[in-house]
Amino acid sequence: MTKRITLPITDEDIKSLKTGDSVLLTGTIITGRDAAHKRLYELLQQGKELPVDLRGEIIYYVGPAPAKPGYVVGPAGPTSSYRMDKYTPALLDLGMKGMIGKGARSQEVIDAIVRNKAVYFAAIGGAAALIAKSIKKEELLCYEDLGTEAVRRYTVEDFPCIVAVDSEGNNVYRRG
């Protein structure tokens, strides 16, 4: 069964989501990957304010391809999440509510998800052209100089993903 969630995500929504659930997200999400995470994390460590308010938000690990004329965004599938593991617990402790990426997370991230009642969604890696169809609008928020890695706000409609780690720490990724 597919669950539809309207963003911003509520604590009740998060509680109702179970690992393995198929979800369609509608609302706004924020993009950011390696370079943006590094900058945000360094600001946090220096005790400085972030240029983007992540409280209550879901961050999508993506570096889109350029948009062809007539398109809102270029292909925009998830990138591997583990590279953000170092930075994620601090962002969750700040009040960020979820992440969308692909692949397994560290135990520290899973612990931070449970501690903060958050959720980690997996999108299908390599399904970038299809996923882009659910992105209806984009707006630059900060770090324009990072190009594809800049932080943007996407307005999405029925963005397809799967609950990979729920708020109780259940993990969809099995060990081989």
């Binding site: 391809a65 292909p75 990138t79």
Partner: peptide, 25 residues
Amino acid sequence: QSVLSQIIENDRIAAAEQIPLCQDT
């Protein structure tokens, strides 16, 4: 099954619209 059919659909969209099938080109 659902993941595979989405990948197949994705690759068809990319070919039909001549856009990259994955953002990491």
